[in-house]
Amino acid sequence: MQSPPDPTLAFERHDHGCCLRDTLARAEEVATRAGARLTPVRRRALEILLEEHRAMGAYEVLEKLAEGGFGSQPPVAYRALEFLVDHGLAHKVRRLNAFAACMHPGEDHAPVFLICRACNAVAEAEGQGVRAALDDAAEVAGFRVERANIEALGLCPACAKVLNE
């Protein structure tokens, strides 16, 4: 298993082409292992999410899919995004009612989303410790957590710098 990408990359300049290629390759492997197909529209939807390192709404994804000739009806985007989420290739960022590419496809992980309130950049950080604390608190209440979406709202380094000036 590969080491997880640095979550701060969403907030810093980096070799984004390499980041995109590596994540797409892992996504292909995940889909193949699951007996699913990363069809051209599904692949393009994932590429769109990966291109920006931020959460994007379904209609924003649809607009970019339509530009690529994939159709302009909402079900085109919603089906592709649903597939990506169901197969662990993207996450729904509930705070923004948007989607972000999973930076750890195929890995068992507990993501924490760091969301910039100014530019909507989203970094996926490892949240195993946060998830463990949540599970411990739930256990005390006799509750079993089946799914959790942990999101933190704040400022990315670039927006914090601009807003502090």
Rank of each mutant, 00 (worst) to 15 (best):
P105W: 14
T8R: 11
P74C: 12
R13G: 11
A121R: 05
A160W: 02
A141F: 13
P4I: 07
N97H: 04
A148K: 06
V76P: 13
A148V: 10
L20F: 02
G71T: 12
A137E: 14
H104R: 14
R33M: 15
T8P: 00
E124T: 09
A66N: 05
L20N: 01
D135M: 05
H16I: 05
G17L: 09
L65G: 05
D22Q: 07
R94N: 09
R131F: 15
H53W: 01
R21N: 07
G127I: 02
L65K: 09
D6S: 06
E52W: 04
E124I: 07
K161T: 10
L46I: 00
G106A: 15
T23C: 00
A98V: 08
S72H: 10
A36D: 08
A123E: 01
T8K: 06
A158H: 10
G142W: 14
A10K: 01
E51V: 09
R117Q: 03
V122P: 00
E29I: 06
E51H: 07
E51C: 13
A10N: 02
Y59F: 14
R13C: 11
E126H: 05
A25E: 13
H87D: 00
A58N: 05
P74L: 14
A80F: 11
K92Q: 08
N149M: 00
E60L: 10
L20V: 06
C119G: 08
G68K: 06
Y78M: 13
A34G: 06
A66I: 05
A133S: 14
L49V: 05
A158S: 15
N164V: 15
N120P: 00
L134W: 09
H14G: 00
V93Q: 00
P4N: 03
L89I: 06
T32P: 02
E60A: 11
L38G: 12
A27C: 13
P40G: 08
R21W: 03
K92V: 11
G68F: 06
T32H: 10
I115N: 00
D86W: 04
H16M: 06
E107L: 14
I150K: 01
A160C: 05
T23N: 01
L114F: 06
G142E: 10
Y59V: 14
E47N: 04
D6F: 07
L84V: 08
A121H: 05
E28Y: 02
L134H: 14
A80M: 12
D22I: 02
L153N: 06
E52V: 09
T8I: 07
N149K: 01
R144W: 11
A118R: 11
A123I: 07
L163A: 07
P7D: 02
R26N: 12
P111W: 04
E67D: 11
V140C: 08
D135I: 05
L134Q: 15
T23Q: 00
F113H: 00
R37P: 00
F11N: 08
N120L: 02
A138N: 15
A90K: 04
A132T: 12
R95V: 05
H16T: 05
L155V: 03
D86Y: 07
L24C: 02
P111C: 07
L84Q: 02
A152H: 03
A90L: 09
R117S: 08
A138C: 15
P7W: 03
V85W: 01
P40Q: 12
Q128A: 14
R131Y: 15
G17H: 10
A137L: 14
